Simulated scan of single mutants.
Amino acid sequence: MEYDKKPNPPTKPASVKDSPENTTNTIPNYNLKTVRLKYVKLGYHYLITNTMYLLLIPLAGVLSLHLSTLSVKDILQLWNHLNFNVSQLIVCLQLIIFIATLYFASHPRKVYLVNFACFKPDPTLMCSREDVIDRCRQVGSFTEESLAFKRKILEKSGFGQKTYFPPSIMKIPQNRSWMEARKEAKMVMFGAIDELLAKTGIKTQDIGILV
């Protein structure tokens, strides 16, 4: 006898949950020691800069509480006592002057930017990367391998196609002497300073400190 075999119902595959090893951790991995050290430095900076306030606020609070308990009669009696004790009055005034001087001396003065100037060389000193390689080839001191390495450095170090080079390097043959280096420094520094003085209208005699 033949029996009809019923097909088994299709079974759904069991869903497999991602294991912790397969899941990617999206939380950035911060170095706790670095973060803690950063906050320690920040707290130390605020502590040093606000030391005067931290010392004066409790003193002012205690003094205000003590003065609130005094009556008018006590204040008049204290004033008469100070009139008869000039030395104590002088010491108190000196202490107040010392604290005020210490506060203003430790408080940094504000510095304002009036104007600025950037030195821009002559357009004849503008040079592209290809011109630099050509001048290095004309010098005759570099091999093709060295020129290829120099070309790679120029491409990856941020030199644009309108970069300014000093005259000592642009000349053929190159003149790398102390005199040329001095001329280059003089050209850059004096050029920027002259432009800045022309913008602000300040005379050199009025400048007390140069940083």
Score class of each variant (00 low, 15 high):
F165Y: 05
E195V: 04
Y46F: 07
L113S: 12
M189H: 02
Y39R: 06
S15R: 02
M52R: 07
Y44F: 12
P13C: 04
P10V: 01
R176P: 02
A117T: 08
E2D: 14
F98V: 09
N8E: 11
P166G: 12
K12N: 09
A185Q: 05
Q77F: 02
V35M: 14
Y103S: 04
I172P: 02
Q174H: 03
K183V: 02
L54Y: 06
L55T: 10
Q88P: 00
T124D: 12
S71M: 00
N83D: 14
R182K: 06
S71L: 02
L59K: 15
N29Y: 06
P10M: 08
R135P: 08
P13Y: 13
V114I: 09
V114N: 13
I153R: 14
D4N: 10
K171F: 00
P13H: 12
D74C: 01
S146D: 15
I209G: 00
P123A: 02
V91L: 11
E180K: 08
E130K: 14
Y3G: 13
H107R: 05
I27G: 10
L54M: 06
F159W: 14
E21S: 13
D4V: 15
M52N: 08
L59E: 08
R36T: 15
D122Q: 06
F119K: 08
A60C: 03
D4Q: 14
V111R: 07
L32I: 10
A181E: 12
A105Y: 05
G61S: 03
L82Y: 07
F119A: 04
M1A: 13
V188C: 03
L59R: 12
D122C: 11
R36W: 10
K33V: 12
E195N: 05
P123R: 05
T101C: 08
I99S: 13
D18H: 10
L113H: 11
M126H: 02
L95D: 10
L65V: 03
E21T: 14
F149M: 15
L55Q: 04
I169S: 06
L125V: 05
S141F: 15
G191W: 01
L154E: 07
L95F: 00
K17T: 10
P9Y: 15
K183P: 00
Y3F: 11
S71G: 08
S146Q: 15
N80M: 06
A117C: 03
M1L: 11
I133M: 06
T24K: 14
I75S: 09
D4L: 12
I133D: 06
A148R: 15
I96S: 13
P28R: 15
Y44K: 07
Y103C: 00
A105M: 06
P121C: 04
S128D: 03
N175D: 08
K5R: 14
V86L: 02
I75D: 08
K150H: 01
F119H: 12
M52G: 13
S146Y: 11
R182Y: 09
D206N: 15
A181L: 04
E184M: 02
V16T: 10
K38D: 01
F98E: 01
G160F: 03
T124H: 14
S87N: 04
I207W: 05
F149K: 15
T101Q: 09
V35A: 07
S106A: 04
R182S: 07
M52H: 07
H66V: 01
R151P: 00
T69K: 09
P108F: 00
A105Q: 04
N83W: 09
T23W: 14
N83M: 13
G43R: 12
V111D: 07
A117K: 07
Y112S: 08
